[in-house]
């Protein structure tokens, strides 16, 4: 799974820590999400998508 979190985060001028505080997780979790090493819950995916102003399917890309 790949994510566009890093790219969209930069577009909104948010640091990893700021995004982590907005969605209520650790900065470490955002790091692992951006690396594609963590599969978030639906709620967390929804919260991140809401903060970054995109849909969930625009944020996460699955290799089919």
């Amino acid at each position: 799974m790949k994510t566009k979190i890093k790219e969209l985060r930069a577009r909104h001028n948010l640091t990893q820590e700021e995004l982590a505080i907005k969605v209520g997780v650790r900065r470490e979790t955002i790091v692992f999400l951006e690396k594609g090493k963590y599969n978030p819950s639906l709620k967390l995916a929804h919260d991140i998508a809401r903060v970054l102003g995109v849909r969930i399917d625009e944020l996460f890309i699955f290799d089919d």
Binding site: E17, A20, G24, R26, Y38, S41
Partner: peptide, 12 residues
Amino acid sequence: KPKTDLVVDERV
């Protein structure tokens, strides 16, 4: 550590 690093989130 900053307080945000001690949150027990879903990953932890």
